[in-house]
Design a protein around this nucleic acid. Structure first.
Length: 283
DNA sequence: AAAGATCGCAACCGCGGCTCC
DNA sequence: TGGAGCCGCGGTTGCGATCTT
C-alpha cells in the first residue's frame, strides 16, 4: 500500500561508495542530522537513492559503528539471541552496541551457521541434530562454547579481546494491544517480517512504531527490577500455531518470561548492569 | 605462477509497517 | 477510511580478496 519505488534508478550512482560521496554524506548529516532519507541525497549533492544513503550511514559511516573483531562473547550472544529471535537481525544488533544488523547477518551467514553445523546443531532450529524433537540447545542447557579446531572457531578465539559483553539496555517502551495482536498474528503466519518486534536502542534505525513490542522484555522489567532482554523464543513460534489471535495476556507474558529467565540464569556475562526501568504497559 | 574455487562483506532489492493527510 | 509517502527490515547479489590445486 502506497509503496513507491525506492528511487528512479535513472542517473543515480550505484555500487561501492567513493570517499568523496562518504564525505558529502557525513558532512550533510553532521549539519542536518539523520532522517529525511528520500530527500537527503539531493540536498547533500549525492547521486544516490535515499535508501543507499541510509544504508551507507547506518552500516559504515555512523561514528559509533564498531568494526571487525566480533569477540567470542559477542559470538556466543548472537547465537543465543538468534535461538530466541530467529533472523531478526536488527533486534539482535540492538543488544550489541556498535554492531549493525547487516554485520551480524553477514557474520551469521558466513561464520556462525557453519560453526553450529560443525557442532552438530541446526542453525535454523538450534536443535542438536542428535537430540529428540523439541529439545533445542537451550532447553537442553546448551553447553558453553565448544571449541573445535575448525577455522571459524580459531578465528573467533583469535578475535577475543575482551571478556564482558555489555548488553544494550532497552528503552522504556509502550506495549499496546495492537502490537501484541500483531505479534501473534504474524508469528502464526510464520512471516519473516515480524515487525512487531522492534529494535532496541542499539539499533539506530529505530522503527516507526516506537514500540518495543515484546511482552517478555517488558514483563521481565516489570517484575524483576533488573532489565531482561527481550525475546520471542523459537518455542513461542512453535506454539503459535495453537495460539489464538488474541492480545498477549499476563499468563502469556509470564510463560514467555519464565522461559527467558531460565536462559538468563545461565548467562552471567549478559546481565545488564542497571537496576530498574520505568516502563509503560497498556494492554 | 596461474587458474579456478571459495569466502566475506558491502550494497542492493522488495516487502511491509507506520504516519500523515 | 484509505491512499500516498517514508522508513526499516531481512534476503539476496556482486565482486574483490583469499585460498586451493
Amino acid at each position: 500500500m502506497g509503496r513507491s519505488p525506492c528511487c528512479s534508478k535513472v542517473g543515480l550512482q550505484r555500487g561501492p561508495w567513493t570517499s568523496k560521496e562518504d564525505a558529502l554524506l557525513v558532512k550533510y548529516i553532521q549539519d542536518h542530522g539523520e532522517g529525511q532519507w528520500r530527500s537527503l541525497p539531493k540536498k547533500a549533492g549525492l547521486l544516490r537513492c535515499g535508501k543507499s544513503c541510509r544504508l551507507r550511514w547506518m552500516n559504515y559511516l555512523r561514528p559509533d559503528v564498531k568494526r571487525g573483531n566480533i569477540t567470542a562473547d559477542e559470538d556466543d550472544l548472537i547465537v543465543r539471541m538468534h535461538a530466541l529471535l530467529g533472523n531478526r537481525w536488527s533486534l539482535i544488533a540492538g543488544r550489541l552496541p556498535g554492531r549493525t544488523d547487516n554485520e551480524i547477518k553477514n557474520y551469521w551467514n558466513t561464520h556462525l551457521s557453519k560453526k553450529l553445523r560443525s557442532q552438530g546443531i541446526d542453525p535454523i532450529t538450534h536443535k542438536n541434530f542428535h537430540l529428540p524433537d523439541g529439545e533445542n540447545i537451550f532447553t537442553n542447557n546448551f553447553p558453553k562454547k565448544k571449541k573445535t579446531k575448525n577455522k571459524c572457531n580459531m578465528e573467533a578465539a583469535e578475535k577475543t579481546t575482551k571478556k564482558n559483553v555489555n548488553v544494550h539496555i532497552p528503552k522504556p517502551v509502550r506495549f499496546t494491544s495492537s502490537t501484541s495482536r500483531l505479534f501473534f498474528l504474524k508469528t502464526k503466519n510464520n512471516s519473516p517480517h515480524d515487525q512487531s518486534l522492534s529494535p532496541g536502542p542499539g539499533d539506530h534505525s529505530s522503527n516507526n512504531s516506537g514500540d518495543n513490542g515484546l511482552g517478555i522484555f517488558i514483563h521481565g522489567i516489570h517484575n524483576n527490577d533488573h532489565p531482561v532482554d527481550d525475546g520471542g523464543s523459537n518455542d513461542l513460534e512453535l506454539q503459535a500455531d495453537h495460539v489464538p489471535p488474541e492480545p498477549l495476556n499476563k499468563s502469556d507474558l509470564d510463560k514467555i518470561y519464565e522461559e527467558y529467565l531460565q536462559l538468563l540464569k545461565t548467562e552471567d556475562n549478559c546481565k545488564p548492569k542497571v537496576d530498574s526501568y520505568v516502563v509503560s504497559i497498556s494492554i
